[in-house]
Amino acid sequence: MANLLALIHNETIKVWRKKRFAVVALVLIVLIPVFVYAQMKIAQNNASKFADWRSELQQRITDNTNALSSERIPEEWKRWRRALVQQLQYYLDHDVNPNTPNAVTFTSSFLENSVSLFIPLMVLAVASDLVSAERSTGTIKMLLTRPVRRWRILLSKWVTLILYVSLIVVATVALAYLISGLAFGYEGWGEPVFVGFEPQGSDIELGAVHAVTRGAYLLMEMGLVWFSALVVATIALMVSVLLRSTAASLVTMMAAVISGMILANMASSWHSAKYLFNVNLDLTVYLQGTPPPIEGMTLGFSLAVLGVWGAAALATAFAVFTKQDILA
């Protein structure tokens, strides 16, 4: 019986040689400069308009407060703006700039913006055809007629997936930092950032607020992004086992991820939607202290929902893969 390490070796080589990671890296290398440029324009614009960051912050607070009095804005948006105003005020009160333009803050906000769609899509590039490609090319007949139990083969594929998800998260951060550093400088690891804002109904609880360094903050974000990406990858693995065609499993997963984003934005009065995995993907909102898409969601809740979905998907994938007949 071949050992698991050899099987993981095989799977890692296959994903690598299919150039899946190369595509992900290429997409990042093309996209990040675009965002860096946009960010740079904003920074230049602000620099010309405001004397220093304090007056800029004050202007944002005023803008958002004014918007709150408008009748036309839906209640969910108001809630979000109210929370933002409180946060900004806290930063102003403590004389801390929340948006110093540097590579670390850029990387942080890039992660926050990519966690619910961009990172899942890149993960799907690896995960969606992990099993279905073996089926559609027929290589599964060679793979499953070797003296190895099927659960070991699927386990090796899942472990490989964990490795590549980690690699994608690390590569995203590394590339975002390296590329944005060219424009903003590589400083900023030690700057303070406040965490612990707890949205309570329409208000924000400030009792637990404390400062951490930007570096620690980024690391925590990476952990959260990694976890939600891993759950997406695991569900994609299950879909890849269930559906024979790679295209079908990719489309299914993309539809799930995108519909989650839409649902989250609807900030719906449909409360039971919070048990869907796809509205829970943006774990970084809890770190930022902005209100979650649906009331009643907390970090613990989202982690539990994602964990349950991931575990169920993994169990289904193993149950089906070890028993299914390879008919064609």
């Binding site: 071949a2 050899a6 099987l7 070796h9 095989n10 080589i13 296959k14 040689r17 299919k18 150039k19 090319t137 027929g138 290589t139 007949k141 060679m142 793979l143 007629t145 070797r146 003296p147 190895v148």
Partner: peptide, 30 residues
């Protein structure tokens, strides 16, 4: 299956690997 070698229908191997890498791949499984 240690005692069996087989080709079911067409001999499908990984097209993006070389012949040698394909053999290494399957050699690692036993």
């Amino acid at each position: 299956l240690r005692y069996v070698g087989c080709i079911v229908e067409n001999p499908e191997m990984y097209p993006y690997l070389t012949g040698w890498e394909n053999l290494e791949h399957f050699a690692r499984m036993q």
